[in-house]
Design a binder for these strands. Structure first.
Length: 424
RNA sequence: GGGGGGAUACCAGAGUGGUCAAAUGGGGCAGACUGUAAAUCUGUUGGCGAAGCCUUCGGAGGUUCGAAUCCUCCUCCCCCCA
């Protein structure tokens, strides 16, 4: 199956420029996606772009990643309603270096004939003077053309700075540069990038009469309309410092059936037959959540490692399995810590619980697990609070007998939210 | 420059002198059901406490026994006319 065909089957194509498929079948080319280094880690919203490049490389083409060292100094206005905040050079540089490492989890940077390559558009824009740029590049694209893009329309009503308006030209220039220097013939990205990408192909056509292509993937949405990749606590990051491996695994495990069917094709590399087989199995026994588990497993191993995955599984087993309060009490300290790695912790002085303390005072005043006593009392009334896996139905008094390993108290809000109190 | 409308809890949006900690919907949280799903249903959603009290309706003052509600000024937003 060809590259484009593969993507089509996986539901990863929103728009594709005519001729793209033929070109990729005929010859090996380089293709790129741009990444804005706006944070020091990638999050799962970036994953689609990464997978596009992964498939590309698997089909023998050369993946290029372009860090928006220059463009992220400007800010992409596409479909945004507000002016972007400008980042400093130092931040961008630091972020780029962090992101670079994460890419090597997915792409092969060492292969002999189509190694992935990471570039920074700052390198080819930093010495380009303003005069030269508007003379060499700006001359080829009309403002009328730029304003006609859907991506900037929203901002034309409310106002857009010249800085942000010029963004698409800058991105188009990237494409031109890569076309000329890297034999790059294809740019990919999320569907919101279509406007920027086509400005690039247009520029290439006008400057050197070249044919360059565009391919975008659909914006990932959740079946309930919520924003993909966001939870109450924010983004799901690839960096385990920001999102623990446990939380990462849980995120995928908790996908709805409907989303899982979509995600398994997009976010795993499993072959077509296997996915179809898994879908069948899932259909027959949905409660086993085979799809969710497969996605979670594949991604956790890829992003975090097999070893971490095994720990996460263990933790999951203890937190959601049949394990009881007894099992919890019998955990070794080492095991306990590994299970609850990534769970929010709160430190409390030992003196606080030496002479018994009301659970409400402990969790609101001593440890800031809950922000108000009313909230916690409500939770208790509703039967949603657990201490060391035991349901708490009234305002109990806590003392040293509650300590696990003479050091920890496990607090649970509802079924899924855990907090660890460390007494020191 | 003239005229009009508006700003209410996370969001949307009722409320136009006391019965308003403020309808309703969405969202959030929890419970039930289940499969750590979806859908559904229930409860809850300012703070502290047992009753009750305290701080909230853009900001600052004022009228009143009593103001989200009336008056004055200020800030911001929208619309119409010039």
């Amino acid at each position: 199956m060809g590259f484009v065909e593969t993507l089509r089957w996986r539901g990863m194509i929103q728009d594709i420029m005519p001729g793209t498929e033929e070109l990729l079948k005929k010859e090996k080319v380089a293709a790129y996606v741009g990444i804005d280094p706006t944070a020091d880690s990638l999050h799962i919203g970036h994953l689609v772009s990464i997978m596009l490049l992964k498939h590309l490389q698997l089909h023998g083409h050369k993946p290029l990643i372009v860090m928006g060292g220059a463009t992220s100094m400007i800010g992409d206005p596409s479909f945004k309603s507000d002016e972007r905040k400008l980042l400093t050079r130092e931040t961008i540089e630091y972020n780029s270096s962090c992101i670079k490492k994460q890419f090597s989890l997915f792409l092969d940077f060492d292969s002999s004939d189509n190694a992935a390559e990471l570039l920074n558009n700052y390198d080819w824009t930093k010495d380009y003077t303003f005069l030269n740029f508007i003379r060499d590049i700006g001359k080829h694209i009309s403002v009328n053309y730029m304003m006609a893009k859907d991506s900037v329309k929203k901002r034309l009503e409310t106002g857009i700075s010249f800085t942000e308006f010029s963004y698409q030209l800058l991105q188009a220039f990237d494409y031109l540069h890569l076309y000329q220097h890297k034999n790059c013939r294809l740019q990919m990205g999320g569907s919101d990038q279509w406007g920027n990408i086509t400005t690039g192909t247009e520029l290439i056509r006008r400057v050197c009469g070249g044919e360059a292509y565009a391919l975008t993937c659909p914006l990932i949405t959740k079946s309930d309309g919520g924003k993909f990749g966001k939870t109450e606590s924010g983004n799901i990051w690839l960096d385990s410092q920001k999102t623990s491996a446990y939380a990462f695994y849980q995120f995928w495990l908790n996908c709805s059936d409907e989303d899982a069917k979509k995600f398994i094709r997009i976010f795993t590399l499993l072959p077509q037959e296997e996915i179809i087989q898994l879908e069948k199995e899932h259909e027959q026994a949905p409660h086993l959540r085979i799809l969710q588990k497969t996605i979670a497993t594949e991604l956790t191993i890829c992003v975090h490692s097999l070893n971490t995955y095994n720990k996460v599984l263990e933790a999951t087993e203890i937190l959601f399995g049949k394990s009881t309060a007894d099992a919890l009490a019998n955990l070794s300290e080492e095991m306990f810590l590994s299970v609850f790695e990534g769970v929010p912790t709160f430190n409390v002085a030992r003196s606080a619980i030496e002479n018994t303390i009301n659970i409400v005072d402990l969790l609101v005043e001593k440890a800031n697990v809950f922000s108000s006593k009313g909230e916690l009392r409500r939770l208790i009334k509703e039967g949603g609070l657990f201490v060391n896996k035991n349901k708490v139905l009234e305002e109990i008094l806590v003392n040293q007998d509650y300590l696990l390993n003479n050091k920890y108290i496990l607090i649970q809000k509802g079924k899924k939210n855990y907090y660890v109190i460390i007494v020191s």
